[in-house]
């Protein structure tokens, strides 16, 4: 159960990446998670609210894009997606394939930021006008 540590690492990384956009609210965080990454989606979602509380990510949605395992088959000379994670065999020829090309990813793909409401120009302009009079 290391999903809380993972969630905390995501919050830290996103907070850092969102720093150049002051005041922006993080609406959504998209992850790429390989089938071999040993991360349980439900547990991560469960931890999300707790991990994001009192951070710029409060109320954000976590979207997890799951990636299947892809191996490179030497015999066929191609990359092939395997079904599940319990047998690393080329789906074309059935040979064991040790060369992993995808499946360990644990990445933040992108974040969606919502810019803060611009200051209401009406109010500001009126004040200035009154001062001038």
């Amino acid at each position: 159960m290391h999903e809380l540590s993972i969630a905390a690492s995501i919050v830290e990384a996103v907070t850092e990446s969102a720093a150049p956009y002051p005041g922006a609210r993080v609406k959504e965080v998209r992850l790429r998670v390989g089938a071999l990454a040993s991360v349980i989606e439900d547990s991560l979602q469960f931890c999300w609210q707790l991990a994001t509380e009192d951070t710029p990510l409060t109320g954000s949605v976590l979207v997890i894009n799951k990636l299947p395992v892809i191996v490179h088959c030497e015999a066929c000379g191609v990359d092939a997606e395997i079904d599940g994670v319990q047998s690393f065999r080329c789906p074309r020829c059935g040979e064991l394939a040790a060369d992993l090309r995808q499946g360990r990813e644990l990445e933040i793909e992108s974040i969606e930021l919502e810019d803060p409401e611009p200051a209401q120009p009406g109010a500001g302009a009126r004040e200035q006008a009154e001062e001038r009079i």
Partner: peptide, 17 residues
């Protein structure tokens, strides 16, 4: 209200790595 997508492509455990 404007929103923007920022591509990160960053490892979650980058610090540990």
């Amino acid at each position: 209200m404007t929103t923007r997508i920022v591509e990160l492509r960053r490892g979650i455990l980058k610090k540990n790595d």
